[in-house]
C-alpha cells in the first residue's frame, strides 16, 4: 500500500502496437523479460513510474481485433477478451443477469474514468491481494485463456494467481481472454465488498451457487480476496452445503467453518481480527441473500 512515486516521468522504452496475435507473440519472443504487455495500462504504467517494473519494450495489444471479443454463447458461457474495458463488460446485458457477482465486483472496481480504460485481464494480472476481480472469477470457476509459443493453454483463475503480484504467465505468453462457464437458471451469485472510507475492500467476498433446492446437485462456491496475499476459497464452508439441512443451519455452520478455518492477514488497512469478524458478518449476509433469491 505504500505506493507512491517520487517520479513523474516513465523510463525510456520502445512502444510497439502489433495488429495480429502472431506479431505480438514474436515481439515477446524476441524481447522475453524485457517486454511487457500494455492493455489498459493502469497497473503497468504505475509500477513503471515507481521503477518497480522495468521494460525495454511495451507491446500494446489494443490493435489486435480478436482480443476485443465480448461474447456470450448460450450453453457455453461468457468470453471476455483481454482488451475489453471494464465499462464495456458492464454494459453487456448478460452480466447483470447471469453473472451478478462479477457485475457487482466490476461496478465497485476503481472508478468510472478508470473503468473506461482498464481491463478485467489487467486487473487480474496485477494480482494484488486487494483487487476485486479474482473472487467472483474463481467463484464462477472461470478460466484464463493463454497463447504462447507452445500454443494455446487454458488455466483456472484459481491456479492462475500464484501469490502477491505473481501469476502463472510466462513473459512470452499473452492472455487472450477469460471464459466464465454457463450459469443455469438456478444459479445465483453475489459480491460484497467492505470499503467504507477506503479505496480497496478490507474483505471482498463472492458467492456463486446453483441448485440450492436440490441438495444432491447443490453447489456453493465461496471466495474471498483482500484477506491474504492471494484469494482464498472457503472449501470447508462450501462442503457444508452438500448435506441435506435447512438453509439456516447450513448458513450458520458455514460461517462457523469460516471462523474456524481461515486466518486472514493484518495489514495497514485492517487487522486480521477485524477482517475475520467482517468475513463472518458478510458471509452470513451473502449466503442469506443467496438463499433468499433461490
Amino acid at each position: 500500500m505504500s505506493f507512491g512515486s517520487p517520479y513523474f516521468t516513465l523510463p525510456r522504452f520502445r512502444y510497439e502496437k502489433p495488429d495480429t496475435l502472431e506479431k505480438a507473440l514474436s515481439i515477446l519472443q524476441e524481447n522475453k523479460d524485457d517486454a511487457r504487455i500494455l492493455a489498459g495500462g493502469v497497473g503497468l504504467l504505475n509500477l513503471m513510474k515507481e521503477r518497480l517494473v522495468e521494460a525495454k519494450v511495451l507491446v500494446d495489444i489494443k490493435g489486435i481485433k480478436e482480443l476485443h471479443k465480448l461474447e456470450y454463447k448460450k450453453g457455453q458461457g461468457l468470453t471476455i477478451g483481454s482488451t475489453v474495458t471494464l465499462n464495456e463488460i458492464l454494459e453487456h446485458p448478460i452480466l447483470k443477469q447471469r453473472y451478478t457477482a462479477l457485475y457487482q465486483a466490476i461496478s465497485t472496481l476503481s472508478d468510472n474514468n478508470l473503468r473506461n480504460r482498464s481491463t478485467l485481464v489487467g486487473d487480474l494480472c496485477e494480482a494484488l491481494p486487494w483487487i476485486d476481480s479474482p473472487a467472483p472469477l474463481i467463484a464462477f470457476d472461470a478460466s484464463v485463456n493463454i497463447t504462447g509459443p507452445e500454443g494455446y493453454r487454458s488455466v483456472k483463475v484459481e491456479s492462475f494467481i500464484k501469490g502477491m503480484a505473481e501469476v502463472d504467465l510466462a513473459p512470452v505468453e499473452i492472455v487472450t481472454s477469460i471464459t466464465l462457464p454457463e450459469q443455469t437458471d438456478t444459479s445465483r451469485s453475489i459480491y460484497l465488498k467492505f470499503a467504507r472510507g477506503t479505496e480497496f475492500g478490507l474483505v471482498n467476498l463472492a458467492v456463486v451457487a446453483s441448485n440450492l433446492k436440490k441438495y444432491v446437485d447443490r453447489s456453493v462456491r465461496i471466495v474471498y480476496s483482500a484477506i491474504d496475499t492471494k484469494p482464498v476459497r472457503a472449501l470447508e464452508a462450501e462442503s457444508v452445503f452438500k448435506e441435506d439441512l435447512p438453509p439456516r443451519d447450513m448458513i450458520s455452520r458455514a460461517v462457523e467453518k469460516i471462523r474456524d478455518t481461515i486466518e486472514p492477514m493484518s495489514d495497514n488497512l485492517a487487522s486480521g481480527q477485524y477482517r475475520k469478524h467482517l468475513m463472518q458478518v458478510m458471509t452470513y449476509e451473502a449466503l442469506t441473500r443467496i438463499f433468499e433469491g433461490a
Binding site: Y15, K17, L38, N46, K62, D111, L114, N116
Partner: peptide
C-alpha cells in the same frame, strides 16, 4: 497524484472520460 487516484488529469478520449496520467501519448 500522477497515479490514477485523484482524476484531475481526466479528459474525454473518443467519447469517454479517462485519466491521462496513465495513458501514453502514442496510444
Amino acid at each position: 497524484c500522477w497515479r490514477g487516484e485523484c482524476g484531475l488529469c481526466s479528459a474525454i478520449l473518443d467519447g469517454k472520460a479517462v485519466k491521462t496520467c496513465l495513458i501514453l501519448a502514442v496510444e
